[in-house]
Amino acid sequence: MEVIRNLVQSLVIIIILAMFLEMLLPAGQMRAYVKMVMGLLVIIAVIQAVGSMARWSFEEIPALVAGTGDGGGQLPEILEAGKRISARQQELGIEQYRQGLAQQVTALVKLNQGLPLLDVEVSVESDSGSPDFGQVKEIILTVSDNPKQTSPAPGGTEPVEEVSPVTVQIGSSETPEREEAVPPQAAAGIVDVLTNFYNIQPEQVIIIYR
């Protein structure tokens, strides 16, 4: 940016100088000749300004890629550094994509089924050489045994499990039935939704009860 600013500044000064010199020219037949030489001078000035920018580009970009700052990197080193940076960028991109998918799955589960979702983990194909690069490999849903326990809100506190009301019955030996953790219809439904949404097989959606 600084180089472009300097280039524009130089061009503006050159134009002003050319206009100033043109006013000094004689009005007779000599004017055309002097004007031609002045045009050459302006061309030199513009070429020098552009040339300085071109030299900057050729010297500064390898230094930027190599991260050394001395600008003296050899071509193999520069290419190796480029590959490293590209791999790192790809890794970051996949991680961001994976987190986005996890958020999508969380929203789908909460909207459609209302499962007591604790955690979502999505794994994607990260091998760039694979034909399935970027596709969802597996979705692991961690749900709670207790339907009333849900995952904490971001930045919130850990949820507290509610204590069921205690009833004391004297003279009765029957024990109350335990509430079903997650209805199987709900689990099957969310698997169906996720397989349809992401075009994956039902085996790729794993539900873990905790």
Binding site: S10, I14, L17, A49
Partner: peptide
Amino acid sequence: GVITDLSNRAGI
């Protein structure tokens, strides 16, 4: 003087 100053600024 003005022309010299301008040419110095333009790097001519």
